[in-house]
Design a protein around this nucleic acid. Structure first.
Lengths: 203, 203
DNA sequence: TTGACTGGTGAACGATCGTTCACTATACTT
DNA sequence: AAGTATAGTGAACGATCGTTCACCAGTCAA
């Protein structure tokens, strides 16, 4: 992407700041106020430059200012590749993508999350308190890590379906495989395949 | 939250749909078009009802329609508690929060992510290819899982600082602790504490 | 020195947008 | 029978918003 002038960079930062603060893109006049520019035309010039250089897109509607994918990503949680010698990261550089739940996993209702309780899947790097991201599906292939509801209680296990029974295998030697046969009267429902994991640790 | 009438629910769904499609909240007239309502007043009545019941907030500005925290969360990836007997989840019910990166961890530049390479931290449930979410800080307390840059190369390890040396301890018995003394001439820089983890698995 | 680019002011036009007023109709409760 | 909530139409007002036109000034390369 083409480099920005100082003023253009300030303009882009003001757009990001406004979005963080209000949740909406700014109008020309709001941007002008933030930058100390009296004329909407002055603001427009900057935005046209930003559009020409690929940082934003302008839609002819109220608050129609869009950020390009690259900038949109950087505005969230950027994924850093190499860490350079200078500051942790300079603005809008040195990132290889962004942690965006929607882009990463998809959105509800196809995708949802279940909180994992217990240490039965530590062998698969899934720990107590983690959020398992589940792509909803009525069935999953044998051996996949799946979220399964047994009598309404959700658990995350490696899943195997056999003739007349399902087997739930933990990833922890302290837990024996659990076999549930069809004639047991239990309601076993596959919620979907576990496609991701989100953990919060420390303070 | 107060229950919605069918029409009000349709209206709320239209707001969500418009935001998913365009990234912006709809205007009264856009909403009216989506719902087959000719008068802006008809739309406004519904939104006033939604506001009264706590689903949205209305700001007197272009596209000033905000969703309440609860609904905002449900529009992303909801975290499900108990899974009821019916459909996986009914719309806007039965969730205990949302997986939202900003709300979960904070935002750039205080927070960023680093891709983990290797299996040195499997004992802590951190695996090859995971994204470690890092809260930027120049120093971390002893024993914390931290992201550290050694000569510009980022690694995630348990961190200990002692007089004149730092020790990086892996969570995998196959890796010995790594001790780096100050007089070795290596540049060791603490990037911050690892406060989260995001993984993508399966297909 | 003639452009091209950047960074502005000021005014104005038409479209969009939030808001308000007056009026109609149905359904349910009191 | 009166009141309240829902669900609309239609018109209008003023504010906001995107867009455009004319004009000015500094910098820098051709």
């Amino acid at each position: 992407m083409d480099p920005l002038t100082l003023r253009q960079r300030r303009c882009l930062e003001a757009v990001l700041a406004h979005r963080r603060r209000t949740g909406l893109p700014p109008t020309y006049r709001e941007l002008g106020r933030a930058l100390g520019i009296a004329s909407t035309q002055g603001v427009r010039r900057h935005l046209e430059a930003l559009e020409r250089k690929g940082y934003v897109r302008m839609r002819a509607t109220a608050r129609g200012l869009e950020l390009s994918e690259e900038i949109e990503g950087a505005a969230g949680i950027p994924i850093l590749g190499r860490i350079a010698a200078g500051r942790p990261v300079e603005a809008l550089e040195n990132f290889e993508g962004a942690v965006d739940m929607g882009a990463l996993y998809g959105t509800y209702p196809e995708v949802f999350a279940v909180r994992v309780v217990g240490d039965s899947m530590t062998g698969a790097g899934i720990r107590d308190g983690d959020l398992a991201v589940v792509r909803a599906a009525p069935k999953v292939e044998n051996g996949a890590v799946a979220a399964v509801a047994i009598d309404g209680e959700a658990t995350v296990k490696r899943f195997y379906a056999e003739r007349g029974a399902v087997t739930l295998v933990a990833a922890n030697p302290r837990y024996a495989p659990r076999i549930i046969r069809e004639n047991e009267g239990r309601e076993v429902r596959v919620l979907g395949r576990v496609v991701g994991l989100v953990r919060r640790m420390g303070t």
